[in-house]
Computed example of a mutant assay.
Amino acid sequence: MKSTRTLVAATALLASTAVGAFAKDAYKIATEGAYPPFNFVDPSGKLQGFEIELGNAICAKMEAKCEWVIQDFDGTIPGLLAGKFDFAMTSMSITPERKKTIDFSDKYYSTAAVFTVPKNSTITDVSPQALQGKTIAAQSSTIHAAMLEDKYASVTTRLYPTLDEAFMDLKSGRVDAVFGDKLATAPWLKSEAGDCCHTVGGDITDPSFGPGVGVALKQGNDELKARLNKAIKDVVDDGTYKSINDKYFPFSIY
């Protein structure tokens, strides 16, 4: 399975998305390609998802030609700093810690976090005290991983390159729970693979999560940041955002 995912990801890396007949600029956009429904690679090797469609709409508003580049989530910030791409739409939350190193556009969606456990689990309370001694999985370099390490010192934290890999270990019984994004968890639970499990404890929010998810870019690129902010506002104002949102979610995530 892993080799197949790597192959389709490599195929998608070679593909680019051109937006706008009269492009004024050209940008490379990073995406993970493994975080449905926000970004993923379909069986034909094509990038799909909410962020892909939204990114294309943003590029159209900027009259820019954009090429998508697949990048592991935990390599997003190093990739930006190294100049591998111009900006990133990898469902990265805007946090004070990250803003020490990179910059963000205005938010383009917001979401809470949830704990997912097997249906036969005895876990109902998700407080740090109740989860003492449990093994909790999360995707590495995320706000969820940071919260576990900061506020759940009494649990064993196991980090994974992708959320899908964390869910696979939950299903196989290698971890007691997965802590992750509510909107990314929902489609897995609705899939055949997720029939084993459910969420407990309700929506989890925390000030450390920041104001939402934004486009990540290098510090000091104020012109690009202003263009991104205007484009995000424009797609929200003209209804484009809603039409994309409604394809993936039964409620607004803005």
Rank of each mutant, 00 (worst) to 15 (best):
T95Q: 00
G83C: 10
L54N: 01
G75T: 04
P43A: 02
G79C: 04
E53P: 04
A12C: 00
K100R: 15
M89W: 06
S93R: 15
G49E: 05
G33E: 06
G83K: 05
G83H: 09
R98S: 10
A23V: 09
K46E: 13
E67S: 11
S91E: 03
F85L: 07
I70T: 15
K61D: 09
C66Y: 10
K28R: 15
V19G: 08
G33L: 01
G45F: 06
T17G: 14
T17P: 11
F104T: 10
Y109K: 10
P36E: 08
E67D: 15
C59H: 10
T31M: 08
Q48S: 00
F85H: 07
A60P: 07
V19L: 12
C59Q: 07
A64L: 02
E63M: 11
S93I: 05
A34Q: 11
M92Q: 11
T90G: 06
L54S: 02
I52H: 08
P96S: 10
E53I: 04
L14H: 07
K107Q: 13
V69G: 00
Y108T: 10
F50E: 00
S91R: 03
R98W: 02
A60S: 13
K107V: 12
I102S: 07
K99M: 15
D106E: 13
A60E: 14
C59T: 12
A21C: 11
A21W: 04
M92D: 12
I77N: 00
G49K: 05
D72W: 02
F73P: 01
P96I: 15
L13Q: 14
I58D: 07
E63A: 13
E63I: 07
M62E: 07
D74N: 04
V19M: 09
T90N: 15
T95Y: 03
P78V: 03
A21T: 13
D42C: 00
A15H: 00
I29Y: 05
L13N: 14
F73C: 00
E32N: 09
Y35R: 11
S110W: 09
A88Q: 01
G45E: 02
Y108D: 05
T31W: 04
L54F: 06
T11H: 11
G20E: 09
K100W: 05
N39Y: 04
I52P: 04
K99Y: 09
T76D: 05
Q71K: 06
A88S: 14
K61V: 08
Y27K: 09
D74V: 00
L14T: 14
P78Y: 03
P96H: 11
I70M: 14
G20S: 13
L14Y: 05
V69W: 02
F50Y: 13
F40A: 12
L47H: 00
T101L: 14
V41S: 03
E32F: 12
A60M: 04
P36D: 01
G75L: 14
T111R: 05
C59W: 06
T111C: 10
T17L: 13
K24P: 02
K61G: 04
F50Q: 10
